[in-house]
Nucleic acid binder design. Structure first.
Lengths: 239, 239
DNA sequence: GCCGATTTGTCCGTATGTATC
DNA sequence: CGATACATACGGACAAATCGG
């Protein structure tokens, strides 16, 4: 991301998160920021827009741009925005071990197509992984990748980080991700794979991901033990 | 919302949802749309940006703007973006009956402040409501409003739609909403209030809402029976 | 209550860069 | 290589909301 507005966004975000611009105070006015960053009105506004979209600020006409972000109470494991397991683990200060339970090539039949959003007949790589945190198996990921988009993928890579591989090695750009969060009863398989204690339900997050070519190349169902599941998001009206 | 870009956004969204621009096809190019809507490059781009943010399209440099939205498999009750119960009910084709269980004025102590994100000493209106759908009590809403922001609020209004009242009568503009989704064990109170069948856990969505003045005026905890809970969201990389 | 200064919001027109075909 | 299409940035203009004198 080499855009100017994005650098400005990151700088402002850092200043908010580090407390330079505290909660419920105004950041400097557009005019001052334009001088500081030596850019135009429009470029700065784009940065502010992104900042707003992520729930950091609330611009108020005639007054200024108010900081509305505050350090959240940390729960055990927080997911947010577009983020892979490795990133989420690092941000939460946890080491995540991944074991690959299944890795195979399949052709989508009607049932799989219905479940994943792919077309019947698509060649897919089916990967099942178990995530271990705090000494327990807590997350069960069942993924399907479009085979043609992830050539070269191996079980070894899957055990590390698939997204790092796709973005780094294959140069793929992940852009949009449509999520659904629901709750489901644990299946016999869930009980076998995860350390469920006496929980009988799971938090299930389904993720359909598109790359920069607009290709839907991944559907992942993440099945979380409920006490470790926490999802954050920000909605902005009018956007 | 009287902005031009917003009208264009709504028109394009409608065309995508009604199938005029189908899944995995390109919408007309910027140039053609500029002619159609008689606006400039920048204005149209803003509309496209909003469209992208909501997961409807994926612009691809050098190629076009691809539709990536498809009619979702409908679950029993879907929540999305900024939307109140009335809107969600209508969109899901359900009639929601609301009963007010509690309505009182309180002063936030340390514990309440910690839980809700308000400051200790703030005067709050505490409202508890039960939502009835499909002949069962399915959602238990525990809300706290900043008293000074919701003057004139009555139990009768709370039974109807608080947000309609705030936006319509008080002219308040709701803007940002920070959400957390977790799972919790049902309490004795939950069991008393809701028709939980044999479920022992709930999907809990906490919502902290800011108005256009940047005032955090509401924190609501919505406790959903798990089989009726479904939450949708879209994340876009780089924004 | 009015007016002017400040600040954000929207839009226009233009130029240039980058990716695709 | 050129045409097409999206991406970023600049500079200017006016509207709308707020605030203080």
């Amino acid at each position: 991301m080499k855009a100017i507005y994005y650098d400005i966004y990151k700088d402002l975000r850092e200043k908010i998160m580090s407390g330079v611009y505290p909660y419920q105070t105004y950041i400097p006015s557009e005019l001052k920021l334009i001088e500081e960053y030596e850019c135009t009105h429009n470029t700065l506004r784009k940065a502010l827009q992104v900042l707003q979209m992520h729930g950091f600020v609330q611009p108020i006409r005639g007054k200024g741009v108010l900081v509305i972000w505050q350090l959240g109470r940390r729960t055990r494991f927080v997911l947010g925005d577009i983020e892979n397991m490795r990133e989420a683990g690092e941000r939460n200060g946890l080491v995540i071990e991944t074991s690959v339970r299944r890795f195979e090539r399949i052709v989508a039949d009607e049932r799989v197509a219905q479940l994943t959003g792919f077309a019947a007949g698509d060649e897919l790589i089916r990967v099942e992984r178990v995530r271990r945190l705090d000494g327990a198996n807590l997350i069960f990921d069942k993924s399907c990748f479009l085979a043609s988009s992830v050539e070269g993928l191996t079980p070894e890579i899957a055990a590390d980080s698939i997204f790092t591989y796709l973005e780094g090695t294959l140069g793929m750009q992940i852009t949009t991700s449509n999520r659904t969060i629901t709750m489901e009863y644990a299946t016999a398989e869930d009980r076998e794979v995860l350390d469920l204690l006496d929980f009988d339900m799971l938090a299930v997050m389904e993720n359909r991901t598109f790359n920069s070519d607009g290709v839907h190349f991944e559907t992942t169902q993440s099945r979380h033990r409920p006490d470790y599941f926490s999802f954050l998001t920000t909605a902005v009206r009018g956007y």
